[in-house]
C-alpha cells in the first residue's frame, strides 16, 4: 500500500451482534473497496440495518472488529465515527423536522466546521466567518441534490421523496469517505426512485464509497458494483450483480427452497 491509503475503506472481521438470545449478525466478514458502490440485500430481518448501526456506532458489536481506513472503529461512539468520515441515512427518515431544509444540511457540516460554545455566545468574527462558510457549503449541496429552491421550507413539510434526498444531502455535507444509505428508494415512486439512483451514482462519481441497503432490486442491480447477501445475520453470497442474480442460494433465501 502506498502512502498509507488502504485499498479497502471498510473491513469487517468476525462481527457478531447479539440482542439477548437473538443473534442478529453472526461471524460476518467482508470488505468494501474504495470508490465502489456495494449493496447489502437480504430478506426482512436479515440484519441489514443492524449491520449499519454497528458500522456507524449506534451500538458496538458483541464481538469482532470494524476497520475504517486501516484503524479499528468498533469501540467508537457514533459522533466519533462521523468525524472519521462515515456518514449515514436512516431507514425511517430521521430529519430534524423542526428545522429548515438549509439548516438540516448546515448541521451536516458540523463534522468539518464547528464553533465552540463560548465563541458562538460572543459571536467572534471567526465564528461569523465559519457560519458563512457553512451556509455556502450547504447551499452548494442543496444545488447538487436539487433542493436549492426549497431551502427555506421546514424539513417536515417536504414529500417523502424529497425528505430522502435531503437526508442524503445532510449526510454528504459531512464530507464523508463512506456513505451508508439505508433504503434510499423505499416508499418512492418510479420517478423519485430514478432521481435517487442517479444521485447515488453522482455521489459515487465524486469518489465517495457507497454502502447501500435496498430492497428495490432494479436499483441494486443497476448501480452496484458488488452485492453482499445476508440471511439470518449470515453472509450467504457476495459478488458482482450478475453472479448474485443467478446464485441458487440467494434465490432460495428469497423464494424458499424448491419442493
Amino acid at each position: 500500500m502506498s502512502a498509507g491509503i488502504e485499498e479497502n475503506v471498510l473491513e469487517l472481521q468476525g462481527v457478531v451482534m447479539t440482542f439477548g438470545g437473538l443473534m442478529a449478525l453472526s461471524n460476518l466478514n467482508f470488505k468494501v473497496r474504495r470508490g465502489m458502490i456495494k449493496a447489502i440485500i437480504g430478506p426482512n430481518g436479515a440484519g441489514k440495518t443492524t449491520l449499519f448501526n454497528v458500522i456507524t456506532g449506534s451500538f458496538p458489536p458483541t464481538q469482532g472488529t470494524v476497520t475504517f481506513n486501516g484503524r479499528p472503529i468498533q469501540h467508537l461512539k457514533a459522533h466519533k465515527i462521523a468525524d472519521r468520515g462515515i456518514s449515514r441515512t436512516f431507514q425511517t427518515v430521521e430529519l430534524f423536522g423542526n428545522m429548515t431544509v438549509l439548516e438540516n444540511v448546515m448541521l451536516g457540516c458540523y463534522t468539518r466546521i464547528r464553533t465552540s460554545f463560548m465563541a458562538s455566545g460572543f459571536v467572534l468574527s471567526q465564528a461569523r466567518r465559519k457560519e458563512k462558510q457553512i451556509r455556502e457549503n450547504a447551499l452548494k449541496i442543496l444545488k447538487f441534490i436539487g433542493l436549492a429552491h426549497k431551502f427555506k421550507d421546514l424539513a417536515d413539510s417536504l414529500p417523502l421523496g424529497e425528505q430522502k434526498l435531503l437526508e442524503i444531502g445532510r449526510a454528504l455535507a459531512s464530507e464523508p469517505e463512506l456513505i451508508c444509505l439505508d433504503e434510499p428508494a423505499a416508499g418512492l415512486n418510479e420517478t423519485e426512485t430514478h432521481v435517487a439512483s442517479s444521485l447515488i451514482k453522482a455521489i459515487n462519481a465524486k469518489g465517495i464509497t457507497v454502502l447501500l441497503v435496498e430492497h428495490d432490486m432494479k436499483v441494486v442491480m443497476n448501480i452496484s458494483d458488488e452485492i453482499l447477501v445476508l440471511n439470518y445475520g449470515r453472509k450467504i453470497a457476495e459478488g458482482p450483480p450478475e453472479d448474485i442474480r443467478n446464485s441458487p442460494r440467494v434465490i432460495e433465501a428469497y423464494l424458499g427452497a424448491e419442493a
Partner: peptide, 16 residues
C-alpha cells in the same frame, strides 16, 4: 435543536 429533534441523527452527523 438537532438533539431535540433526533438524538440518533444528531449523533450520526458528528454531534456529541
Amino acid at each position: 435543536r438537532a438533539i431535540h429533534a433526533s438524538e440518533s441523527a444528531a449523533g450520526a452527523m458528528g454531534v456529541d
